[in-house]
């Protein structure tokens, strides 16, 4: 599998009244052609900021730091002039934004909104674009007679489908989906996930799928990255992350999943909340909440390193050398 996207050292800060906060802090990631990469983390861990950074749609007071690199097919999109981005968005990179049900313009029929995505990238004739738009909508399960509906006439799940149709309308190289199923009821969630898998099969879609819910990500992703306080704390194949979580945070996430089969367990939530980015703890960001923390954790800030083949983790439990360094 060849590499489609390679991100190196991506950092995005928000300038707040209390000073700058790094909502995304030195993130590295790669997505292979035809691969789906999952990003999980609690709300506030910086997932949306990561997504918007990749789209280069971060708004003030946010800013992508210099030195961040984003190579799509070898070309660094962060180096392009701002004016070159509209031509890339929707064609090179497409977005399924968070709360996508509200991402449709309420006063324009949905087929015209999809058609607009097509005319924005070359198709000059609006008739032809509208026909293509309707095909795309049919492909995501919107019947021809609903194509001309306004967003408020459609259910949340259908609107979600329309946004997906809009995102894939121009056959983008990479689709980035931010919480594509949250806010939908369970049955609809399952259908949307199935749709995404189908599109992946039929189109060979490459994708980054972001969610606060590990099970959602586990269902369709090839690899998973776990995000905490703007950093990646664990990364690996979906199966290994699920079956053998290394980082105490990942372990807590896995244990928090309610088990349908097997003996009843009390649901274990992770105590505490995500850290205040203005006042990060000394050492490891997770240390104040960590059940496995020891003395060094308050001193050393662990980096993301390979713990086993194909598995990276940022935790002193697995970093012999870093521990010794402090001794």
């Amino acid at each position: 599998m060849s590499t489609l996207l390679e991100v190196r050292g991506l950092s995005t800060v928000y300038h707040t009244s209390e000073g700058p906060v790094r909502a995304v802090d030195g993130v590295d990631l790669t997505v292979g052609r035809g691969e789906i990469l999952g990003v999980v983390g609690e709300s506030g861990s910086g997932k949306t900021t990561l997504v918007m950074s990749l789209m280069r749609l971060v708004k003030p007071p946010g800013r992508i730091l210099k030195g961040s690199e984003m190579l799509l097919d070898g070309e660094d999109l962060f180096r392009l002039p701002r004016s070159a981005m509209p031509a890339r968005r929707g064609r090179d990179l497409a977005l399924i934004p968070q709360s996508a049900m509200h991402a449709l313009n309420p006063v324009i029929p949905v087929d015209r909104q999809v058609a607009e995505a097509i005319t924005a990238h070359g198709e000059a004739r609006s008739k032809a674009a509208l026909r293509t738009a309707r095909d795309r909508l049919r492909e995501v399960g919107i019947s021809p007679e609903r194509c001309h509906a306004y967003p408020h006439e459609l259910s949340g799940g259908m609107r979600q489908r329309c946004v997906i149709a809009m995102a894939v309308a121009n056959e983008p190289k990479l689709v980035i989906a931010d919480e594509p199923v949250s806010g939908l009821d369970v049955v609809v969630q399952a259908r949307i996930l199935r749709l995404i898998s189908e599109l992946r099969e039929s189109r060979g879609l490459s994708m980054i799928l972001v969610s606060h819910d590990l099970t959602t990500v586990a269902k369709i992703c090839d690899r998973i990255m776990v995000m905490y306080a703007g950093r990646i704390v664990e990364a690996g194949e979906t199966r290994t992350v699920f079956e053998k979580p290394l980082h105490p945070y990942t372990r807590a996430l896995v244990e928090a999943i309610p088990q349908v089969r097997g003996p009843r367990q009390t649901l274990r939530a992770i105590p505490g909340g995500p850290p205040d980015l203005n006042h990060l703890p000394p050492g490891c960001n997770f240390q104040p909440r960590c059940p496995a923390a020891f003395a060094d954790c308050k001193v050393v800030d662990p980096s993301l390193e390979e713990a086993e083949p194909g598995k990276k983790v940022a935790c002193l439990l697995y970093h012999e050398d870093e521990r010794k360094l402090e001794a």
Partner: peptide, 25 residues
């Protein structure tokens, strides 16, 4: 600052057409 504006930008519309979406509303 509405969500549909982000989507309009994300699908690659020019700034003028993005603003047009807002004006319509």
């Amino acid at each position: 600052s509405e969500d549909y504006i982000v989507m309009a930008e994300a699908k690659g519309l020019s700034r003028r057409r993005v603003v047009g979406h807002g004006v319509r509303n």
